[in-house]
Computed example of a mutant assay.
Amino acid sequence: MPVMTRLRAYHAVLAVLVLAAYFSTEWGAVHAWLGYGVAVVILVRVIMALTGAPQLGLMRFYPQIHGLKLDNAFTHPAISRVLLLGIAVCLIGVTGTGIAMDRGRTLKAASSPAFGPVAAQVETRGEHEGGEEDEDGEESPLGEIHELFGNGLMLLVAGHVTYLLLFKRPLARFMILGAPKSPQK
């Protein structure tokens, strides 16, 4: 499979999983499973970066301001890279805090002989939207951090999409539709 096709597929799977996880905070085990799915996709992305293809390298997330001038400020690659770095930090943060809050309970419930209604097993552990509750019914600090990373991620993703549509439309078109078909003679 060509490198850019793999990158587009990775991007699409990650986008769908992240959006589904973000909008499923009230769904207990479904939210947890989506979070674990995001973790797997992140791991796959790191493995893809190790293949050596420049399009997949992690240096794409490192902003380089060389050549940034007033006349190219909106189209310079540093803007995209700053957004990508912020997205990566929030994505890793929200995934890591989610896994830390779950402490493997969702995976353990799935591997138990009484797998049956995993959602009911996981839902009884005292969690609600974004994290564990303490004895006063308040969200834990880790749950608050998880929610902060999740909301920050959505803001940065919205900024990323807006930026691409405004200033990098050919790249946005390629990531959504693929390479344009060559005109037939």
Results as ranks from 00 to 15, higher is better:
residue 35 G to N: 03
residue 19 L to M: 14
residue 16 V to K: 11
residue 149 F to D: 00
residue 88 A to V: 11
residue 50 L to I: 09
residue 20 A to I: 02
residue 43 L to N: 06
residue 141 P to I: 14
residue 102 D to C: 04
residue 31 H to M: 04
residue 116 G to Y: 12
residue 172 A to P: 08
residue 7 L to P: 00
residue 119 A to P: 11
residue 80 S to H: 12
residue 127 E to I: 11
residue 105 R to G: 06
residue 156 L to A: 07
residue 121 Q to V: 10
residue 178 G to I: 10
residue 37 G to K: 01
residue 86 G to A: 07
residue 1 M to L: 12
residue 146 H to N: 03
residue 99 I to D: 00
residue 126 G to I: 04
residue 76 H to M: 05
residue 39 A to V: 03
residue 13 V to W: 07
residue 55 Q to M: 06
residue 40 V to A: 13
residue 128 H to K: 14
residue 29 A to K: 00
residue 1 M to N: 09
residue 42 I to R: 02
residue 91 L to H: 00
residue 42 I to H: 02
residue 51 T to C: 11
residue 54 P to Q: 09
residue 4 M to W: 07
residue 184 Q to Y: 13
residue 61 F to N: 03
residue 48 M to S: 00
residue 142 L to Q: 11
residue 103 R to G: 10
residue 185 K to Q: 07
residue 57 G to V: 06
residue 132 E to F: 02
residue 126 G to A: 04
residue 141 P to L: 13
residue 134 D to S: 06
residue 99 I to C: 00
residue 35 G to C: 03
residue 157 V to C: 06
residue 173 R to F: 10
residue 94 V to F: 01
residue 162 T to M: 13
residue 90 C to P: 01
residue 104 G to I: 11
residue 50 L to K: 13
residue 21 A to S: 13
residue 57 G to C: 05
residue 34 L to M: 04
residue 45 R to T: 00
residue 50 L to W: 15
residue 152 G to W: 05
residue 157 V to G: 04
residue 37 G to S: 07
residue 2 P to L: 09
residue 133 E to D: 09
residue 33 W to H: 07
residue 155 L to A: 14
residue 106 T to W: 01
residue 107 L to R: 00
residue 143 G to I: 08
residue 177 L to C: 10
residue 126 G to E: 05
residue 159 G to S: 09
residue 96 G to C: 05
residue 163 Y to N: 11
residue 3 V to S: 13
residue 69 K to L: 07
residue 163 Y to A: 10
residue 91 L to G: 05
residue 137 G to L: 08
residue 147 E to G: 12
residue 124 T to D: 10
residue 102 D to P: 05
residue 65 I to A: 14
residue 137 G to D: 06
residue 8 R to W: 11
residue 102 D to G: 01
residue 6 R to G: 05
residue 144 E to D: 10
residue 125 R to S: 10
residue 68 L to D: 08
residue 32 A to F: 03
residue 106 T to A: 10
residue 81 R to V: 01
residue 180 P to H: 06
residue 14 L to V: 13
residue 161 V to I: 15
residue 80 S to L: 15
residue 184 Q to K: 15
residue 102 D to N: 07
residue 125 R to I: 12
residue 180 P to G: 01
residue 135 E to Q: 14
residue 11 H to T: 08
residue 47 I to T: 09
residue 102 D to V: 03
residue 42 I to A: 02
residue 92 I to L: 14
residue 138 E to P: 07
residue 101 M to A: 06
residue 21 A to M: 09
residue 130 G to H: 05
residue 72 N to Q: 08
residue 102 D to Q: 07
residue 121 Q to H: 14
residue 144 E to Q: 14
residue 98 G to R: 02
residue 144 E to A: 07
residue 85 L to C: 07
residue 15 A to M: 07
residue 171 L to F: 14
residue 45 R to G: 00
residue 44 V to I: 14
residue 28 G to F: 12
residue 106 T to E: 03
residue 43 L to C: 12
residue 47 I to W: 14
residue 84 L to A: 08
residue 70 L to T: 12
residue 157 V to Y: 08
residue 85 L to D: 03
residue 159 G to C: 11
residue 86 G to P: 04
residue 182 S to C: 02
residue 75 T to G: 01
residue 132 E to R: 12
residue 7 L to C: 01
residue 57 G to T: 10
residue 52 G to K: 15
residue 141 P to C: 08
residue 50 L to M: 15
residue 14 L to G: 01
residue 84 L to R: 14
residue 76 H to S: 05
residue 107 L to I: 15
residue 138 E to A: 15
